[in-house]
Design a protein around this nucleic acid. Structure first.
Length: 466
RNA sequence: UCCACAGUAGCUCAGUCGGUAGAGCAAGCGGCUGUUAACCGCUGGGUCGCAGGUUCGAGCCCUGCCUGUGGAGCCA
């Protein structure tokens, strides 16, 4: 197929001055000159910048259409690429023909009029916010990061596994889940014991939206060696913070014959790969974030790419926190989980860049994490990023059936997760993996502070609009 | 779920002692200009979140509710 030219093709210098092109897009601004022409800034989303259209009054619809254009109008412009006399752009389009595809109904109340808007307000018009500089840039960076993630794994013989969105069992025994049911809420069938009779439900059992594809991923890992999941996950937690979504995207690699150190190495290499791709492929959008959102975004990604992540045992982190002389709201003591304030201190003040904490007390971590020989820790790791907190959580998995049985029995998981147990019964292997919250990664990359701005249509408690 | 803050024009906000409403931006019109966060002038634009209460009188004080934001917990 012969794809039509877009603005990115014109601005990237792929097309020579003098070339005739037809462009389609949306007006951002219009400025008139009484010398007899107007400047129209046209965007089509193909790159950060729009292109300047110069429309002369000799155009037949200059008075009737051009002089009425405002933010949001959609246009078809046929014209010639010419060198610009202005300073802000190298080339522009000298229009030979401009036709309006769609006007803006009531410009005064157009929700994304030409002015500054708060992110909070733009969330209330999430269907229109991709037309703004910020959200256009986020959308392109989100895509670039996604493509880089797939490329990173593909280049290393990983297979992308599409794990189910609907699951019959609570994967980790952690986190509230969204129920999936077709039962009539006004007439719920009950058993003799007066409980809900899920045998009459669609799946003949209780069903939920997944909170993680990890356990299914492990099943494919023990056959294909290197796999990853990348898809939506769901948490029904009533969390009301700038770091939580009810629906978010997670990346979960699972590697056969790998231990915790290999897992940490992969987490580091993976993040560096993705950051490098974003800096190289989306310099235009990253320049915007550096200029208008957070002046550090580019330099801090460059630092992460250039330097090794700090690796630190949980026990050492506890010692550092105990001896740093800082007063924390929550206690620091071996055996207790680290609070947000502790993680922030370690990543932001003590280290100043991403830090990988390893070997946590086994009591505070999930059942599938491998017990260490010291009898009190497990092979868990968290990657903490300054300003974001935990961005990756992972572990070497428990491959020894007896130990896994003991832990699953204690949690009452043995019955539902019989199939997970089978993975240790039939040719068990050491393996490891991690989970990465994709929107948190995007916040770290762009410097955006609220996770609701990292996903096109955020779902949070009390709100599933659009 | 807990704590704190907020809700006034399309948007961002001000509103003094309780006396019936203001600015900037945006929009419309005009002027100027190879302009580009354009600039200058004029104009239109209000159920002060909702429901009660106190008061001669409430944007302002009281009660309840709703919504949003930040933080905690939980986590990615």
């Amino acid at each position: 197929m012969d794809w039509p030219v877009q603005i990115v093709d014109c601005l990237a210098g792929k097309l020579p001055v003098g070339q005739s092109v037809t462009l389609k897009g949306w007006v951002r601004t219009r400025r008139d000159s009484k010398a007899g022409f107007s400047f129209v800034n046209l965007h089509d989303g193909s790159c950060f910048d729009g292109i300047q259209i110069v429309a002369d009054k000799s155009l037949p619809n200059y008075e009737s259409d051009i002089l009425k254009l405002g933010a949001g109008c959609s246009l078809v412009v046929q014209g010639e690429i010419v060198a610009s006399q202005g300073k802000e752009q190298a080339v522009e389009i000298q229009a030979a023909e401009v036709s309006v595809l769609g006007w803006v109904d009531d410009p005064e109340s157009y929700p994304v009029a030409k002015k500054r808007h708060t992110f909070e307000y733009l969330r209330t018009v999430a269907h229109l916010r991709p037309r703004t500089n910020t959200f256009g840039a986020i959308a392109r960076i989100r895509n670039t990061a996604s493509q880089a993630i797939h490329r990173y794994f593909n280049e290393r013989n990983f297979y992308w596994v599409n794990t189910p969105v609907i699951t019959a069992s609570d994967c980790e025994g952690a986190g509230e889940m969204f129920r999936v049911s077709t039962l009539d809420l006004l007439n719920v069938p009950t058993t003799d014991q007066g409980k809900v009779d899920f045998s009459q439900d669609f799946f003949a059992n209780e069903a939920f939206l997944t909170v993680s594809g990890q356990l299914n991923g492990e099943a494919y890992c023990t056959a294909l060696s290197r796999v990853y999941t990348f898809g939506p996950t769901f948490r029904a937690e009533n969390s009301h913070t700038s770091r939580h979504l009810a629906e978010f995207w997670m990346v979960e690699p699972e590697v056969a014959f790998a231990d915790l150190n290999a897992n940490a190495d992969m987490a580091e290499e993976f993040l560096q790969y993705v950051f490098k791709a974003v800096l190289e492929e989306r310099a235009d959008d990253m320049g915007f974030f550096a200029k208008h959102i957070n002046g550090e975004v580019i330099s801090r990604l460059e630092n992460v790419i250039a330097s090794e992540f700090v690796r630190m045992d949980y026990s050492e982190a506890i010692r550092i926190l105990e001896q740093c002389g800082k007063t924390f709201e929550f206690p620091v003591q071996w055996g207790l989980d680290l609070q947000s304030e502790h993680e922030r201190y370690l990543a932001e003040e003590h280290v100043g860049r991403p830090v990988i904490l390893m070997n946590y007390p086994r009591e505070i971590k999930a059942f599938y994490m491998r017990e260490n020989d010291d009898g009190r820790t497990c092979a868990a790791m968290d990657v903490l990023a300054p300003g974001i907190g935990e961005i990756i959580g992972g572990s070497q998995r428990e491959e020894r059936l007896e130990i896994l049985d003991r832990k699953m029995a204690a949690l009452g998981l043995a019955e539902n997760l019989w199939w997970y147990r089978d993975l240790r019964r039939y040719g068990t292997i050491p393996h490891a993996g991690f989970g990465l919250g994709f929107e948190r990664l995007l916040n770290y990359i762009t410097g955006m502070e609220n996770i609701r701005d990292a996903i096109p249509f955020p779902r949070v408690p009390g709100s599933a609009l659009f």
